[in-house]
Design a protein around this nucleic acid. Structure first.
Length: 271
DNA sequence: AATCTTTCCTGCCGGC
DNA sequence: TGCCGGCAGGAAAGAT
């Protein structure tokens, strides 16, 4: 799944090809994504110039004048920029045709992604309106995490993946950030103190920044925006390392289930 | 063939 | 009693 680092890397990749270009149209081969692609999207975007590509959480915002194309990659989505005329393959559901002779193509085998149009302020769109702070900027603070979790009895690992608390922390990075902060993933969120939340906010920021620096973490079917294949696998500290020694203390990494998701942690370093 | 993946939605629960 | 936030579980599709 593209987590925030992949989405940010994709944003940078497509921005170079899209910003300043005029949109000549759109091709919808399969509108049945998570939500139906608006029927007359092509007509609405034709002639518009792309002003900027922004990111809010894992949503990509293709800002035009007027209006914004909102994209989400779901669990298996990827964007590529290719020459017009490149044959579409099985899961290539959507193209945005540019005046440069290129097109931006969305491939999404599992179709949990989204292509939406917002005529007004995209940040006021219902899907984006209530999202938590961005973890890479100063917007995410330990104090915020502390205050928002005072009456949350669920495990910190699960609460951390709630996009209303903080965006962009999926299963992989929740595991990694909790390890770096030395917090046991099973701890009820309300039992974690302010100073530990300060450490956690910093751990989230560092973990995500490191992943972006490494080119985004990997999914085998993820492809960079220019069409060159794949991200390399990142070296995780706990994720997918069940039974292997903790890199800090040597204790075997433990794997448990939390809310039908795999959690990996060091029982000695994370209390 | 059960499992794995993200996010939104539904329905239930306890507290007030 | 009704409302509210929190929480668990379910659903979507495809690869393996």
């Amino acid at each position: 799944m593209p987590e925030l680092p992949e989405v940010e890397t994709t944003r940078r990749g497509i921005a170079a090809h899209l910003v300043g270009r005029r949109i000549e149209g759109a091709v919808v081969r399969n509108a049945a994504l998570r939500w139906r692609i608006p029927p007359h999207l092509g007509r609405m975007v034709r002639g518009l110039v792309v002003r900027d590509i922004e990111r809010r959480g894992k949503y990509l915002l293709v800002r035009c004048e007027p209006g914004t194309l909102i994209l989400h990659l779901g669990m298996s989505g990827s964007l590529r920029v290719l020459p017009v005329g490149t044959p579409a393959e099985k899961h290539d559901h959507f193209d945005l045709i540019l005046d440069s002779g290129m097109l931006m193509r969305l491939r999404d085998p599992r179709r949990f992604g989204a292509v939406l149009w917002e005529a007004g302020d995209p940040l006021k769109h219902p899907l984006l309106r209530d999202l938590g702070p961005e973890p890479l900027t100063g917007a995410l603070t330990g104090k915020w995490l502390f205050r928002q979790t005072r009456n949350r009895s669920a495990a910190i690992k699960q609460v951390l993946m709630d996009g209303h608390l903080v965006v962009g922390v999926g299963n992989i990075y929740a595991n990694e950030a909790l390890f770096r902060a030395g917090i046991n993933p099973k701890t009820p969120a309300r039992r974690v103190g302010l100073s530990r939340y300060e450490q956690l906010a910093e751990a989230i920021r560092r973990t995500l920044r490191a992943a972006i620096r490494a080119g985004g973490s990997s999914l085998r079917d993820f492809v960079k925006s220019d069409g060159t294949p794949g991200y390399f696998q990142q070296q995780y500290q706990v994720y997918e390392r069940a039974g292997e020694p903790c890199l800090r203390c040597g204790t075997p990494i433990r794997r448990i289930r939390q809310g039908q998701r795999s959690t990996f942690y060091c029982p000695r370093c994370q209390k």
